[in-house]
Design a protein around this nucleic acid. Structure first.
Length: 583
RNA sequence: CGGGGCGUAGCGCAGCUUGGUAGCGCGCACGGUUCGGGACCGUGAGGUCGGAGGUUCGAAUCCUCUCGCCCCGACCA
């Protein structure tokens, strides 16, 4: 048992000497559970927006998580290294990301005016290292990782450690001789991440995702499920399909109930004060629902304007639209731009008569005799039909929603909120081509190294675990990440409880268990409240009452009842309970 | 970037409308009583009222600018 226990289980501590500044009241700037709890329980403090200091308890949790990550990464054959956070700008300039990253990149000038930045990620830096040192296929494959600070000047840092401008990330990079080999590395990292997330005690889903600014071809996110998460993900109740809502595909939605399937003649109706779909539905009344209407949105990409059409009860997936158009991103046109392009007030634009490029979702073109803006204020058309009244490129550009059919099976999609805890990518030769990171193969010909990259938001996971593991009294750490697995709480004013508690504490230390001994001269209620707030998984209560009967109490943080154990058996009972919680 | 809210003691807040000695609770220090789920009494320490400028005999309070923090939205027609 001793050999299985990581070294960081040690570091037993007397509470009276510990720096654990707890708060009785909820700090006014915190709203999310993890944010409130990390402040109240004395795990972290804010220095500036999105900039935090981890106090001793927070640091211990961080180290526990890091330890798990290291063990699993090392087991997968990855090797830890440490790159700088303060880096010359030339590498990002080489791949174009100096400009691409925009204001999110924290730029610094040195005394000579040289341009530097604080690294938001390290593809360029590590690719540079590898291109200098790796020359032969014999040196591959390689998987290198680090755990260190990252800097991103987020437009809106929020929710404590969940979205920071400075945060701790585990970033790994794989280098392979071929696409197939790279895919194997990717699969191996996926397996490794599964082991890590399970050991961290997290409920999560792996979802298809957009690869975003990192660039690359395939990626998957490890989404920690939490109502407070920023991301929307959809997952099938019946099969494995799961995706970030940004990229989720939905099967065709059920068509709207519509008595008249025959095409009716187009009809223009004066519809004052009907800017929203809701208002349009109310205006037409009767059987009309949002699914009978078409939502027409103008998007701008560069100099071009596009009209996107989705069914009235659906939302445009902007990422999907951008992908269809083959552009980096699309922005919803401003009211003024819409008026300029169409001569119509926002709320009355529609596809009929629009001369530009129209992209319509399959569910939208499937609506017979739809209601849509007439591109004339204040009018709508009734009985708009695709193919007769307007022509559009048909492409799936709507967001998946709860209850949509699964694209892979007969099941239904369900919508969840998630916290992006990890993200793995197949990068291909995106960076190695730009930076000439090549090797000589068996034939002696030069090939681009095929890359993958794999990130885990380590400091974010501290908060993510808290989001999943807390109750109204405080945190409930899974044993593997708890700052201390057990707290020993002597109560009563006599000598005996403290003496006995100290004996147990010393015995546990000797077993390599990092216990917290609450030797403060506080009243029992205070100690119990603090123990619950801190979230220590096990509590041993040593009171004069129990001592008279020769027992102490052992209580799990997740259970309301404690059990009496004989004094002499206390240490082994704790060890058993730890092993039990460790699963 | 846009919109909203908030900056007064370590934390949570009142005072501001109607300008005139800066307050309350928690926490902290000391003394006493208490002691199995955040006790009680007494005494005390602790504040450039986010910052700058202005109006005024006088500004936490009125005016202007500025900085910081939190939340919502990323304009869904």
């Amino acid at each position: 048992m001793e050999t299985l226990r990581p070294a960081c289980y040690d570091g037993a501590m007397r509470y009276s000497r510990a720096f654990i500044p707890t708060l009785k009241e909820v700090p006014k700037d915190a709203t999310m559970p993890s944010h409130v709890l990390m402040l109240r329980a004395g795990y972290a403090r804010m220095v500036g927006a999105g900039i935090y200091e981890l106090l001793p308890l927070g640091t211990r949790v961080l180290h526990k998580i890091e330890q798990i990550v290291r063990e699993e990464m090392d087991a997968a054959g990855a090797q830890e290294l440490l790159m700088p956070t303060f880096v010359p700008g030339e590498y990002f300039k080489e791949t174009g990301r100096w400009d691409l990253y925009g204001p999110t990149l924290l730029r610094i000038k040195d005394r000579k005016g040289g341009e530097y930045h604080l690294a938001p990620t390290h593809e360029e830096i590590i690719t540079d290292l590898v291109r200098r040192e790796v020359k032969s296929y014999r040196q591959l494959p390689l998987n290198l990782y680090q755990i260190q600070l990252k800097y991103r000047d987020e437009p809106r840092p929020r929710a404590g450690l969940l979205r920071c401008r400075e945060f701790i990330m585990k970033d790994a990079y794989s280098f392979d001789v071929s696409e197939e080999a790279a895919l194997k590395s990717y699969e191996q990292m996926r397996d490794t991440y599964h082991r890590i997330f399970k050991r961290l005690g997290l409920e999560y889903r792996v979802v298809e995702a957009d690869s975003g600014a990192i660039g690359g071809k395939q990626s998957a996110e490890f989404q920690v499920l939490a109502q407070t998460g920023e991301d929307w993900i959809v997952a099938c109740g019946a099969c494995d399909y799961a995706a970030n809502a940004e990229v989720a595909q939905a099967g065709p939605a059920a068509p709207p109930a519509n008595g008249a399937a025959d095409l009716q003649p187009l009809e223009k109706v004066k519809t004052p004060d009907t800017r929203s779909i809701e208002e349009v539905v109310r205006f037409f009344g009767g059987e009309t629902t949002a699914a009978h209407t078409l939502k027409s949105l103008f998007y701008v990409a560069g100099e071009d304007v596009y009209l996107a059409i989705v069914r009235g009860d659906h939302e445009v997936n902007e990422l999907g639209l951008a992908r269809h158009l083959g552009v980096e991103e699309v922005l919803l046109a401003s009211d003024a731009a819409v008026k300029e392009a169409t001569g119509t007030e926002v709320g009355f634009v529609g596809p009929v008569g629009f001369a530009g490029r129209i992209v319509a979702d399959p569910d939208a073109v499937a609506v017979p005799n739809a209601i849509a803006g007439a591109s004339e204020t204040p009018y709508h058309y009734k009985n708009v039909n695709h193919g007769r009244d307007f022509e559009a490129e048909v492409a799936s550009i709507r967001q998946a929603a709860s209850g949509d059919p699964c694209p892979n099976c007969d099941g239904k999609l369900e919508l969840y909120r998630g916290i992006e805890g990890g993200h793995i990518f197949v990068l291909g030769t995106h960076y190695s081509d730009k930076m000439q990171a090549t090797f000589l193969d068996e034939e002696g010909s030069s090939q681009s190294i095929v890359m993958g990259c794999y990130g885990i938001g380590v400091s974010r996971l501290i908060a993510a675990i808290m989001e999943q593991h807390h109750d109204e009294h405080g945190i409930r750490w899974p044993i593997h990440v708890a700052p201390y697995p057990v707290i020993i709480t002597p109560i009563g004013k006599e000598e005996a409880p403290l003496t006995k508690a100290t004996e147990i504490y010393d015995a546990l230390r000797a077993e390599g268990v990092g216990a917290l001994l609450d030797d403060r001269s506080e009243r029992p209620g205070v100690k119990f409240k603090d123990a619950d707030l801190l979230g220590i998984p096990l509590r041993v209560t040593v009171g004069s009452r129990g001592l008279k009967q020769g027992t102490v109490e052992l209580k799990k943080r997740t259970e309301s009842e404690s059990q009496d154990v004989p004094i002499d058996g206390a240490v082994s009972a704790v060890l058993t309970a730890i092993a039990d919680l460790e699963g």
